[in-house]
């Protein structure tokens, strides 16, 4: 089923701050249409991997290609949901305005967003259940609502591949379910979704593809085949007993 095109292909990727490598010689292929979790302990380089794929961090070596072409030529196919703690939520703007930013990439330089962009943004907000909060000042949103706004902003990009950095961090159960339903819908629509994920318990339930990462790539493949104690132990260093079939 997954012998299709590769959405993302990474070769020999190495990233280092100072002399210590954060990511070491990563080879990784993500097939089109999977919902993939990247798991690993703190400091394993999960966020760095995503940021490097997206060109935010420069690698020392290695290449990233999106559907067979360099990322710089394929930006419009890629959407990004950063960690919600990465921005100042006291910035003077509204939820709708933030979601609208998702359309800026296709607008390009100087051109202002118009009715068409507003419509896209409103539709995206509806998908994440935030339409009633569209005019809300972003500092007055709860953590879960902020996360939804970020998700809606990525949806407004209408991309083929979505990279998300810990979208479930600090959100309540309702929001978590709402978000995972949207991710599953994206997969159903043939999109590829890559998520930095922390909660190992929910991996088998939420995802169909998983990558174990701890500076080096430990393993990558279908959850059913490789999400086991052996790989967890290799990644986390201690004996991990996780109920895979719960």
């Amino acid at each position: 089923m997954h012998d299709q095109k590769l959405a993302v292909q990474i070769d020999d990727l190495t990233v280092a701050y100072n002399y210590k490598p954060v990511l070491w010689d990563i080879d990784l292929s993500v097939p089109e249409g999977v919902l993939m979790a990247i798991v690993g302990p703190n400091g394993a380089g999960k966020s760095t991997l995503i940021k490097t794929i997206l060109g935010i961090i420069k690698p020392i070596a290695g290449t990233v290609s999106i559907y067979g072409k360099p990322y710089s030529k394929q930006r419009k196919l890629v959407a990004y949901v950063p960690q919600k703690g990465s921005v100042d939520w006291d910035f003077p703007t509204t939820a709708l305005d933030v979601v609208m930013m998702g359309t800026y990439g296709s607008l390009g330089w100087i051109k202002r967003p118009g009715q068409k962009e507003k419509k896209i943004a409103l539709e995206s907000m509806e998908k994440v259940g935030m339409l009633t909060y569209k005019n809300r000042q972003i500092s007055q949103l709860s953590g879960g609502q902020q996360q939804r706004v970020f998700l809606a902003r990525a949806l407004a990009q209408d991309a083929a591949i979505y990279f998300m950095d810990e979208p479930f961090q600090g959100v309540d159960a309702t929001t978590e379910i709402a978000i995972i339903n949207i991710l599953k819908e994206l997969r159903k629509a043939g999109k590829t979704v890559v998520v930095v994920h922390h909660d190992l318990q929910t991996v088998p339930e939420y995802f169909d593809w998983v990558t174990f990462l701890n500076v080096k790539k430990i393993a990558t493949g279908p959850v059913k085949e490789i999400f086991n104690d052996d790989n967890l132990t290799k990644t986390y260093g201690i004996n991990y007993k996780v109920a895979v079939n719960k």
Binding site: P82, V87, T93, M101
Partner: peptide, 18 residues
């Protein structure tokens, strides 16, 4: 538009190709 998005979220702005 560019000023606003950079002020709010510089990394994201970069991923959009600006």
């Amino acid at each position: 538009k560019e000023f606003k998005i950079l002020l709010f979220d510089a990394d994201y702005t970069k991923t959009l190709g600006f």
